[in-house]
């Protein structure tokens, strides 16, 4: 029984087919697993292991390296406030403090209603509109405490549902097809890659 629902399982298999090795699909598949569950469940990681030809331990070991993967449940909205140098110089720390007070949770924590998780992020590469705030990795461009309050109201009221999908949904544009370069070419390519690797490992 697949833990990933049918549509996601199908997308997962399409993604695996894009790479010369199954394991390469690890990060995109973990994003898919988060799209379904909001965070990485044991069941999802076991399925990613099966899809990538690795073990659940290897999947967890890889996932735990990356900030975007959550091994514990998070809110529907993960709010990231940047305090790195460009944002520090423009009130990032103060905005993070304000966010913590408004959401009623510490940095790294989740609000009582389970809707928001607050994170202090490293530079999000949007420093011309600092301090930078992302919700579920969407730039929301609210730089003042007042704008932040409005943002939270809008999110609660569902007014931003179109722009900000639930946490975990990263790429809503589906790749329209698999590899199209000549299949025999790719096969030859893979065979010689395998040979070369075997030679090196001897």
């Amino acid at each position: 029984m697949s833990h990933l629902r049918t549509e996601l399982r199908q997308r997962a298999e399409e993604i695996v087919a894009l790479y010369p090795t199954r394991r390469s699909a690890m990060l995109p598949l973990l994003h898919l697993a988060q799209e379904q569950d909001g965070y990485l469940t044991d069941e999802a990681m076991a399925e990613v292991a099966e899809l990538t030809g690795t073990t659940p331990a290897e999947v967890r070991g890889t996932a735990s390296f990356y900030d975007m993967f959550h091994l514990e449940p998070v809110g529907r909205y993960v709010v990231g406030v940047c305090t790195n140098i460009a944002c520090l110089l423009r009130g990032g720390e103060e905005l993070l403090e304000h966010a913590s007070a408004v959401l009623g949770c510490a940095v790294g924590g989740t609000s009582d209603d389970g809707l928001f998780t607050l994170e202090e992020t490293e530079c999000l590469a949007d420093c011309n509109i600092a301090p930078v705030v992302q919700v579920n990795h969407r730039y929301v461009r609210t730089t003042t405490p007042e704008a932040f309050d409005g943002l939270i109201e809008d999110l609660r009221a569902g007014r931003l549902d179109h722009d900000v999908p639930p946490h975990g949904t990263l790429i809503r544009v589906r790749r329209s097809g698999g590899l199209r370069a000549d299949a025999s070419e790719i096969a030859t390519e893979r065979a010689s890659a395998r040979e070369a690797r075997a030679k090196r490992e001897q």
Partner: peptide
């Protein structure tokens, strides 16, 4: 990964 719009 944080470039959700860029990825789309």
């Amino acid at each position: 990964g944080e470039f959700a719009l860029g990825l789309e």
